[in-house]
Simulated assay, not measured.
Amino acid sequence: MRIFADRLVEQLNKQLHPTYLIFGSEPLLIQESRQAIQKAAFAQGFEERHRFAIDSSFDWNAVYDCCQAMSLFSAQQIIELELPESGVNAGIAKELLSVSEMLHSDIIFVLIGSKLTKAQENAKWFKALANNGCWVNCLSPDIQRLPQFVQTRCRALNLKPDQEAVQMLAQWHEGNLFALTQSLEKLALQYPDGILNLVRLEESLSRHNHFTAFHWIDALLAGKAKRSQRILRQLEAEGVESVILIRTVQKELTQLLNMANQIQIKPIGQVFESYRIWQSKRPLYSAALNRLQARKIIQLLQLLAKIELLVKTQYDQSSWPLLHQLSTEICLPQVKL
């Protein structure tokens, strides 16, 4: 069973599964998921907790010893296993399969890792564990899901934001869920009646949104001009090195040019497969390829080369105005002659 992290408590109230697979890129959701499972397990008598982090020198015998501790005097256990940042290699996969065969009713097994790849979802070790448990998705909510996420958090704190307040909270805290949680707790204390509107938000909070170069790229691919400019202004204000953005957008434009040439002779789905484009990202690339012809992409790469030359030779001149120009031109709809 697969659920989003914000539905985990609801699921735990119905049933405690023997296995939980917590995967994603959002630290707050991972932390809260772990705590929710611990609380639910403790309430059902799982009083002993063992926590392991896998590294190159990890001794799997410690995990096996916990799994084999079955007797009338053994406490029910929670075993937490953190995967390395590099993911699951062949050796770890083999050990996880072995562990899956040793689990029993006196163990709640929790596996924690970063965002899953398609190959990992289809791997034997993952299926062996997922078949007996719950896969908790801890990815950061995107800009479409974030307002609903804000509303759910507000309800839990008896806060009653109007629609404008929800949108503002989402915009101000995009990419920084820890700050969102802190802001909502502050608002709950400051306004006991729970009513939130723009006036109260502006009086109480400062902006906590945290954007990365990848947020900017997604906005560019989608052709969202206003959003891309807002993100770029925020990155500039945070002191992000322009060369990082140059390198990131250069990679994307080069890939788009190659893809634009290939879709002339291949189905677009086949092109996406060859570049390993995630299903969730394909609408963004489709939008960019519908908007930008090969000739236009070449012009954008030429402008990018001009920006890079400026960065490397004209130290007294800012490259940000040209980056804003590039951002605008990438988002412009294609003019058909």
Rank of each mutant, 00 (worst) to 15 (best):
Q299T: 11
C154M: 06
D162A: 11
R34P: 00
T254D: 06
R7H: 13
N131K: 15
I107R: 05
Q264W: 05
L28Y: 10
P18W: 01
S71Y: 12
S33L: 02
P27L: 11
S274F: 02
L139V: 04
I108M: 06
E47W: 10
F52W: 10
E82W: 13
Q76H: 12
G133A: 10
S57F: 08
L139A: 12
Q264V: 01
K306E: 14
S274N: 09
R155I: 00
S280L: 08
K266A: 10
F4A: 07
A170F: 03
K127S: 06
P321W: 10
A305R: 13
R207I: 14
N258D: 11
D316F: 14
Q68G: 09
Q234C: 15
S56M: 11
L220H: 07
N132S: 15
T254E: 11
E32T: 08
S57T: 14
T254A: 13
G24S: 00
S74P: 02
H17F: 13
D6K: 11
Q148L: 13
G239H: 03
D142L: 09
A237T: 10
S228N: 03
G269Q: 12
S319A: 14
S327A: 15
Q279W: 06
F52G: 05
A219L: 06
K224D: 11
E10F: 10
E85G: 07
V150M: 03
K251I: 09
F272K: 01
I268R: 11
F109N: 01
P333C: 10
R291Q: 09
A128E: 02
A170D: 08
L284I: 01
L159W: 02
G175W: 05
K266P: 00
C138S: 07
H324M: 13
G113S: 00
K127Y: 07
Q15M: 10
T117P: 05
A41P: 04
I297P: 05
L201G: 01
F46A: 08
E185F: 06
S33A: 13
E121W: 06
F46R: 04
E252N: 06
I54Y: 01
K336Y: 12
K115A: 14
D106T: 12
H17D: 11
L232P: 01
V63F: 05
I298E: 15
Q270S: 15
K14I: 05
L201M: 05
A294S: 15
L72S: 07
K94T: 08
Y315I: 13
I78D: 00
R2V: 06
L245T: 02
P333R: 09
S98F: 04
A170V: 02
I22P: 03
V166H: 01
S74M: 09
K39R: 13
